[in-house]
Structures are given as structure tokens and as C-alpha cells.
């Protein structure tokens, strides 16, 4: 039945799971000292996660989907942390939870970010890797729906593990976050729609 799920809505993406630990801060995504003298995100791609322990088995590649634990992207507000992942070709990010500035920066860049719903498997104790193993292991093929097509309202936001044939529900993103991803980020939104409305949006 999971095969019927429509993954073609806003922010729909598929890719290869790359498992990361809890509390991956922005300095671990890309260090401030690397950022200092770089002219743009492309030249920083080789240094992604370089200070992370234990190190990744192989570098982040185009077509990867990051599967992280709690509090991904904590620490600095530097947008380059989300930008380098996008520049590396990361399609989407799924985490138990995401730190607020990273979440903002990612959707502002049009990068789909999903937080697992409370009832998603792997919420208990253990490391991020053992908890993720409840639904996903490194290298699994994943399909992400940030928000699904309005034609299929019964399908929640979530991730389909194509390799294992399972579906994991995620927290529904806010309407405005969907709007941003739909436009490809805040800059295209601003150029297309202009002002952010004042008041409740």
C-alpha cells in the first residue's frame, strides 16, 4: 500500500540515505575557519563534516539524503552550512529534530527539511545510528515528500524507504515553509510575491 503514496508534491525528492549523529552543529557541517577565506559554497564541499567524529565512511555526494538525529544544525546561524549541503547535491534532510536557524536557512534556500513525527520509529534511547536503524540504514533508497500534492490529501508529509518498503511519517511543515520551498526559497518568493504579509500569515 505504501506504493500508492504520492511523492511528487512540493519538495518531493529521492536519494540515498546518509546517517548522521545527534547534535551535528554548523561548525561540524562546515568549519568557520574554512568559511572565512572561501569565495563560495562550491569550494567548501570537500570539507563538509571534516571535524565530525566518527568520520563519515565516504564523502557526501550528489543525490544523498541526510538522515540525522536530534538537533541537527545547532550552533551558529551561518547559512553557508545549509548552502554547502545544497551545493554538494543533497536532495533533502530528514532529522529527529532540526535547530531553528538551520531549519529557516534550509527552507529559505528551498531545501526540503523534515522532522520525524513523534510516532515515527526510533524515538527511544540509543545513538542516532541505532535509533535510525529502526527504519533506515546507510545507503537505503529514500523518497521524501515535504508536502504532498493537493490531489492526495490523505498522504502525510513523510519519507518512504524504498529499499525496505516502509513509510515513516513526519511533522507537517508550516504552510509558509511549504510556500517557500514551492518558490525555491525566500529570494525567489520575494522576487515573485514581493512583501511578506504583515500580521498572521
Amino acid at each position: 500500500m505504501t506504493d500508492r503514496r504520492n511523492m511528487t508534491g512540493v519538495g518531493g525528492a529521492s536519494g540515498t540515505a546518509r546517517i548522521l549523529p545527534d547534535n551535528v552543529n554548523t561548525d561540524y557541517i562546515i568549519s568557520s575557519r574554512r568559511k572565512r577565506d572561501a569565495s563560495g559554497p562550491a569550494e567548501l564541499v570537500p570539507f563538509i563534516f571534516e571535524d565530525l567524529l566518527p568520520p563519515l565512511s565516504h564523502p557526501i555526494q550528489a543525490g544523498d539524503i541526510i538522515v540525522a538525529g536530534w538537533n541537527f544544525g545547532c550552533g551558529s546561524a551561518m547559512e553557508i552550512a545549509a548552502e554547502v549541503l545544497k551545493a554538494a547535491g543533497v536532495k533533502a534532510l530528514v532529522a529527529r529534530s532540526v535547530a531553528r536557524t538551520f531549519y529557516r536557512n534550509a527552507v529559505n534556500l528551498g531545501l526540503p527539511v523534515l522532522e520525524l513525527a513523534e510516532q515515527a520509529p526510533g524515538a527511544g534511547v540509543g545513538t542516532a545510528v541505532t535509533r535510525a536503524a529502526a527504519w533506515c540504514v546507510e545507503g537505503d533508497r529514500l523518497a521524501v515528500a515535504f508536502e504532498v500534492s493537493t490531489m492526495d490529501r490523505d498522504t502525510p508529509a513523510g519519507v518512504r524507504n524504498v529499499t525496505q518498503g516502509t513509510f515513516v511519517p513526519c511533522l507537517p511543515p508550516s504552510r509558509f515553509a511549504v510556500e517557500l520551498v514551492r518558490h525555491g526559497g525566500l529570494i525567489p518568493y520575494y522576487l515573485g510575491v514581493k512583501e511578506i504579509p504583515r500580521g498572521i500569515i
Binding site: 546561524a77 551561518m78 547559512e79 553557508i80 545549509a82 536557524t101 529557516r104 536557512n105 529559505n108 534556500l109 508550516s174 509558509f176 526559497g185 525566500l186 529570494i187 520575494y190 512583501e195 511578506i196 504583515r198 500569515i201
Partner: peptide, 20 residues
């Protein structure tokens, strides 16, 4: 509160941002 570069650029232009 802290924001990233895109938020800051839109803030410079329009003086308004979205907040949860």
C-alpha cells in the same frame, strides 16, 4: 534572534520577516 543570510537580505530590503 539570529538569522541566516537570506533572511537578512530580505530584512534589509523589506524590514519584515516571518516568525513562528
Amino acid at each position: 534572534t539570529g538569522v541566516g543570510s537570506t533572511d537578512a537580505a530580505v530584512a534589509l530590503a523589506g524590514g519584515r520577516l516571518w516568525f513562528r
